[in-house]
Each structure stands twice: as structure tokens, then as C-alpha cells.
Amino acid sequence: MAFILSNINKKFGDLYVLKDLSMSLEEHQLICILGPSGCGKTTLLNIISGVFPADQGEIAGFEGKTISYLFQETRLLCWKTVQENIDFVLKDRLSKSQRTEIIARYVDMVGLRDFKNYYPDQLSGGMKQRVAIARAFAYPADILLMDEPFKGLDLQLKTALMQAFISLWLMDKRSAFFVTHDIDEALLLGEKIYVLTERPGAVKGIISNDVPHQERNLQNENIRQVEQEIYQLLTDSGRE
């Protein structure tokens, strides 16, 4: 069963944000939505998560699915500890014993076992984002929506967090929409990269990236080839 968006249109007032946008996602696939700032990426995620509907177009495959989120901000409750923060989103869905087990597992997986009783203010920015990643995976969701979760972080931290994310995702492959404006992030994470145009956002091209995640780095030949394709796509339409 795949997730399909076809001919999505969205206007805010007179402003066309998304125009005839179509994309599809296989289950357990990680797709990247790459586009410049203001091209409607967040709007697209909001339509997928049902915050507001599209003006026109169809979305299919999302009915009855649960969704979890990774935002640019960590969005942790500062009066709750690491494990309480994760528990906050699980409590309405799982039993106490299930929660304890799941929280322990994901806190471990992001390397924060010794910090599970710490409050967010006692953690570094990177650790907080790890908590947010653990929360997103701990939540029993079919789909993971990520809105530039690595934006504004320094290179070292970004690399470490992306590695933490990838290893978690490889063990627990959620169908994921990953939105970014950063080509490197798209290269390292996406299995399929949707390159969007400037506003109104439409699909400019789809590039698949078959390099296994474990082998990916920016020096890798095949990755560089994918990068070339993306640049080609970006400059091609620039001439139109």
C-alpha cells in the first residue's frame, strides 16, 4: 500500500502555494522533498497531516494512519524529563508496561540512557534533538513527517544527528517524508528526492538515490552523481 498525493493545489488568499503537485511514497520508504525556502514544503506536510485540507487534489493511503513528527525546534516540555517527554505522547495510546519498555528502548537507541531523568534545560541542543527523534520513533506511527529537523545546526552536530537518525530508521523503517532545503541532507537521507520549484511549489523532477544508507557520504562517487543530477535539474529549469 502506497501513499499517494495527486494534483494538490493550495492557495492562501491570492497566493498560490502549491500547484498541481503529485508524489507517491512506498511503505517503509524515505522520500526527500527538496525545495527553496517558501516553496510550500511545510504547507505540504500540513496537508498530509490533516492540519488543513488541500483546495484541490486527492490524497490517498493516509486514512487511519498515525503520524509522528520531527520539527526544526525540539518542542520538548521543559517541566518534563526526557522519559516523561516521550511518555507525554504515548500515554493515550499504550499501556504502562508497553510505554516503559518502548521509552527505554528508544532512549537507549539515541544514546541517552544516562540522561533519561534529565530535564531538557540540562541537555545540549543536540541531545534535545535526539530526544525529539526518540519521541518521533517511540510513537506508534505509520508515517514520519520531518520538517527541516537539522536546520540551523552546526555541521558536526548535524552529521552526528543524521547518523543517529539513519541508524534508528534502518532498524525501524517508517514511511517518511523529509522536507529540506539542503542538498547534502537530501543526498544523505532520501531514497527518492522530489525537487520542487519555487512558489508555487510543483514537482520539478524526481531523482532516485539507490545508494545504501550505510555507504552514503558526500565523497561517495554515486552520491556525487546524484548530486550532479540534482544540480542539472536546478540549472536546466533556470534557463526556461
Binding site: S49, Y69, F71, R75, L77, F88, V89, D92
Partner: peptide, 24 residues
């Protein structure tokens, strides 16, 4: 507002949003 949005997106129940997010 971002915390509220997070809580709503994760479908946390209103009663718990009041006691665990608003009150603190």
C-alpha cells in the same frame, strides 16, 4: 504555540494538554 501544535499533532487528549501543558 509550537508545543501546543506538537501536542495536537501527536493527538494528545485535551484533558492532558490542559493539565500537563497549560497548567505547568
Amino acid at each position: 504555540q509550537q508545543l501546543l501544535e506538537m501536542a495536537h499533532m501527536y493527538r494528545v487528549k485535551i484533558r492532558r494538554i490542559i493539565f500537563e501543558l497549560y497548567i505547568p
